[in-house]
């Protein structure tokens, strides 16, 4: 793989394009604590990019920077070849970045269908007056978006729980609904924060399959944080490794696996 090439084709035939998101020398501090120090990496179009590292390495902080929850003190974020101005999280969502959370963040009082329909929010445009009248534009728009949502529901195989309040669903399904909500937004970049945390082997396999299918069928660019090394090494195209807020490795799964700094970070190294 040539890191400077505009695009290349993977072994399984997917085309990986130019970088869609570039993080340049990001530094994030909370008071005296430096959560992320001077990290640069990029996410290429159509790839599955994993961010790994031990607890407290700054992985989730990194996603929160991409999302706009945190604003880094130093560094630049480039999205689709443009330097991004400081933005609110909802403005970043409107640019086409969706995410799921480490701890499930579904809307507990709503049904599966409504949760996923909420994911279409940025694509729906009718104003309040049309909504109040309902008949006409609002209903048409609702049904068009319902169609897209039903495709997501089919894709994730959750037809049976369409009308169930999400609070009643088991954990694995809730994770799936949350993925569905992010997918319904048809994002350009999908961020997954530990999509497989707390799942059993079957659920992990299902989720891995969904992630690969999303990437393959819709060509969605995915950045994910995951602790299960087997899964990460299996499904990701490139991996960036963080430790104590610093980048210690970046490359294909094989490169990362053989990187001495990464091995030290995970297995520990004798300090003398």
């Amino acid at each position: 793989m040539n890191a400077t090439a505009e695009s290349y084709v993977t072994e399984d035939g997917r085309t990986i394009g130019a970088p869609v998101m570039e993080m340049k020398n990001i530094t994030l501090k909370f008071g005296g604590v430096t959560a992320i120090s001077n990290i640069s990496f990029d996410i290429r179009e159509g790839e599955i990019r994993a961010i790994i590292g031990p607890n407290g390495a700054g992985k989730s902080s990194m996603l929160n920077v991409i999302n706009g929850f945190y604003h880094p003190q130093e560094g630049e974020i480039w999205f689709h070849g443009e330097k991004r101005k400081p933005m609110k999280p909802y403005q970043i969502a409107q640019q086409g970045i969706a995410r799921t959370f480490q701890n499930i963040a579904l809307f507990k009082g709503m049904s599966t269908l409504d949760n996923i329909m909420t994911g279409r929010f940025t694509h729906m445009k009718t104003n309040m007056l049309m909504q109040a009248i309902w008949k006409g534009p609002a209903e048409r728009e609702e049904n068009l978006n319902r169609d897209i949502v039903e495709h997501v529901i089919d894709f994730l195989e959750i037809q049976a729980i369409r009308k169930t309040p999400v609070g009643r669903l088991p954990y694995g399904l809730q994770k799936r609904v949350e993925l569905g909500r992010a997918l319904a937004a048809q994002p350009k970049l999908l961020l997954l924060d530990e999509p497989m945390a707390g799942m059993n082997v079957e659920e992990k396999e299902d989720m891995s399959r969904f992630i690969l299918d999303v990437n393959d069928e819709f060509g969605t660019t995915i950045a994910l944080i995951e602790h299960d090394m087997g899964v990460v090494m299996d499904i990701s195209d490139r991996v960036v490794v963080l430790d104590y807020g610093k980048k210690i490795g970046d490359g294909t799964p094989d490169e990362v696996r053989n990187n001495q700094d990464v091995i030290d970070a995970y297995l520990g190294v004798a300090h003398d």
């Binding site: 969502a93 579904l106 809307f107 507990k108 909420t118 309040m128």
Partner: peptide
Amino acid sequence: GRIGRSWMAIRDMDIAAEIIG
């Protein structure tokens, strides 16, 4: 519809609502 769901999203989980736009 859209507006009602955005209200309920803010009610149930405001951070997740914001991330959706």
